[in-house]
Each structure stands twice: as structure tokens, then as C-alpha cells.
Simulated assay, not measured.
Amino acid sequence: MGCLLALLAGFFPRLGVLIVWIARPERVDAAFSSWIWPLLGIIFLPFTTLIYLLLWQAGGLHGFDWFWIGLAALLDIVHWGASATQRNQIPGRQPRPV
């Protein structure tokens, strides 16, 4: 059950960005100048991209919005670090030589 929860937690922001992109493509087009930036965001920083899309307004981001973007980026980085440490716990996996 824990693995399913972790899988859903890792997949949720990507699914959220895709739903916003399909439901409101004009919002994504207005927030990003090209289609490549949201695509890279889905791959590398999905939670940050989702928060950016949810907070973005016609004038861009202002004031305290940047705090939430920074917090989302920190969560993405923590997610990367947690997944990297979990790779060492796979049964039968040989540790990388130092």
C-alpha cells in the first residue's frame, strides 16, 4: 500500500499539469512562451510547474506567489533526493563503486 501511495504522489503533479493543459490550453499558452517549457516542467519539475500554472495571472507572478514557487521547487528537489536514496534498497542491486 505504501508503494502505491508513493507512486500516486509522484504521478499526481504530472497528471494535474496534463489536465490543466487539456482543459485550459489558453492558460498554459499565456503562462509559457513555448510548448517546450511546460513539457520540460512535466518531466523534471512537475510540482513547480503545476503550482506556477495555478498561481499565474495575466500580469505574471507577484510578491508572495514566488514563495509558493520556491516551496514547490524545494519539494521537487526533495522528491529527487528521496527517490535516489531508495534505489539502494532494491534487493539484488549492486551498490555503485565509489
Rank of each mutant, 00 (worst) to 15 (best):
F44V: 13
L74W: 04
G63Q: 00
L74H: 00
A72N: 08
R87T: 03
W68A: 15
T49N: 02
L40P: 00
R93K: 07
W37Q: 12
G60Y: 14
R96M: 11
G41R: 10
R27F: 06
I51K: 04
P46W: 15
I43V: 15
R96K: 10
W68N: 10
E26S: 14
A84L: 15
R87I: 05
I22P: 02
L54N: 03
I90H: 06
Y52L: 04
G63P: 08
L40C: 03
A73I: 09
F32T: 12
L61N: 11
F12S: 07
F32S: 13
Q94M: 06
A58T: 10
N88L: 09
G41C: 09
I22Y: 08
Q86A: 15
L71N: 06
D29F: 12
G59Q: 05
A23Q: 11
L15Q: 01
A9W: 06
L18I: 09
L75G: 10
L8R: 09
A58Q: 12
I22W: 08
D29M: 13
V20S: 00
L5Y: 05
Q89T: 09
I90C: 00
T49L: 06
L18N: 01
G10K: 01
T85Y: 06
L61Y: 05
R24E: 15
I77H: 13
V20E: 04
D76N: 14
L18A: 11
S83N: 09
D65C: 03
P38S: 01
D76L: 07
I90L: 04
G16W: 14
L7N: 03
N88Y: 12
Q57H: 08
I42T: 02
W80Q: 10
I22M: 03
L40F: 07
I22D: 04
A6E: 03
G2D: 03
